[in-house]
Simulated scan of single mutants.
Amino acid sequence: MRAIVIGLGNMGLSHALALHAANGVEIVALVNRSPRTLPDELKNCQFLTDIDEAFALAPDLVVIATYSDSHAPIAIRAMEAGAHVFVEKPLATTLNDALAVVDTATRLNRKLIVGYILRHHPSWQRLIAEARGLGGPYVFRMNLNQQSVGDEWATHRALMQSTSPLVDCGVHYVDVMCQITDAAPVQVQGIGLRLSDEIPEDIYNYGQLQVRFSDGSVGWYEAGWGPMMSQTAYFVKDIVSPNGAVSIVDAASDNSAEIEGHTKVGGLLVHRLSGDEHITLEDEPGHQALCDAEQRFVLRAILEDIDLTRHINDAIQSLAICIAADKSIRIGMSVQL
């Protein structure tokens, strides 16, 4: 299978390494707008700065890890050129653009996979299973605030040229909520604040959303980026039901911007009315291992013609919730879905 990877930031390089290690895959081009230092494993790959040259190589698979506002147009172009697509989250920065990507995949019979890395993490799968076992309705309490400085803050500022932390990160954790409840979202409320003059005037680097589901479940998620952010209680992952609660424990590191810590679970505390159970989760996969798992899934989806309907519907739903929160922040009112 001939593959190209577009966008060679942290995620793009990790996906390229995953494809390099996969059987039956030839990386025919790595694409980035500016020169990039490549790891040894990728130094023999063709490096291009022109996306037109890359598409001329007739890839079977295009991996998109660019800034969010370019995801939709590149994905549509790739599918129209004959390729299947893996695109990093969020699928798009507007719901209409996301639906256009999905419509293109359906019309052309292309596989479309969105980079929801937590879906491939065994510890997060266990969290979801334990929560579903308790039964709803649920209260979801989640956040991921990052005290980013230096290069990390520069990366976050670049991301915020097109999207807020609430949308960029929120889709992951709202997707977890949706997997647990299976209910449709009905109402979203958001609050947000611009805490830095270094970001665009219409972007906020702190935001919180509240979502209400049709089964009565409710949830909140908050995300903040920047050197001003507190590292107190920056990593809360807590699910409460009438029969108890499931919480991630032992996961937080001293560095809230450390990417390895964003997926780590460490252990679960399952609280039932009959007593508590502490579940130790050993040998958790690191960031690269999770990207490897994602790309193995992508290849299986293509080669085995896996039905991705639920995957795509969930990606659209989680994005719709986060975009509704963004709209709520801008208009100062709750949004009905």
Rank of each mutant, 00 (worst) to 15 (best):
V174D: 06
V139E: 01
G267Q: 06
R132A: 10
Q208I: 09
L8E: 08
L144Q: 07
I302N: 04
A183H: 05
T66Q: 11
S328A: 08
W225Q: 13
L99Q: 13
Y138N: 03
F140C: 04
G226F: 11
D292L: 02
E130R: 15
A183K: 05
H121P: 12
V139M: 06
N96Y: 07
A18P: 15
D250I: 02
Y204N: 15
L108S: 00
P39A: 06
V102E: 01
A129L: 14
Q288T: 10
G12E: 02
P122G: 03
L19S: 07
R132Q: 13
V102H: 08
A78G: 03
D151Q: 11
V28P: 11
S217R: 02
G224R: 08
I203E: 15
V335S: 02
L319Q: 05
S14A: 15
D103P: 09
R2H: 05
L159V: 13
L13Y: 15
Y138V: 01
L319E: 01
F86Q: 04
V85P: 06
L269C: 08
M142V: 00
Q189A: 07
S68L: 09
S14G: 14
V188S: 07
L290T: 13
F86T: 03
V186P: 12
M11W: 12
S162W: 12
E88F: 10
R194H: 08
G133F: 14
V5H: 10
Q189N: 06
N255P: 07
T49S: 14
G190M: 01
T94M: 07
A65E: 13
I331N: 03
A81C: 04
W220S: 04
A289I: 04
A223K: 03
V240C: 01
C169G: 08
I239Q: 00
L38S: 07
D69E: 14
Y206K: 10
S214F: 05
E53G: 01
G170H: 01
D215M: 05
Y221D: 00
K111N: 11
Q125A: 09
A75F: 00
T163P: 13
F86M: 01
V25P: 12
V149S: 12
V335R: 05
V186Q: 13
H120P: 15
Q161K: 14
I323K: 09
E41N: 08
F55G: 01
M333D: 04
V218C: 08
R296H: 12
A301G: 02
I4P: 07
H172S: 10
R33W: 08
Y234M: 03
L281W: 01
R296S: 13
A21T: 11
R2E: 02
I6D: 13
I321W: 08
L112R: 02
E80F: 00
D69I: 11
I259M: 14
Q179M: 09
V174Y: 06
K43N: 09
D52V: 01
K237V: 02
L57R: 04
V101E: 06
Q336A: 13
Q46R: 04
L290M: 15
R310F: 13
M228S: 14
Q146M: 14
E88S: 09
R157A: 11
D40E: 15
T94G: 08
H287F: 14
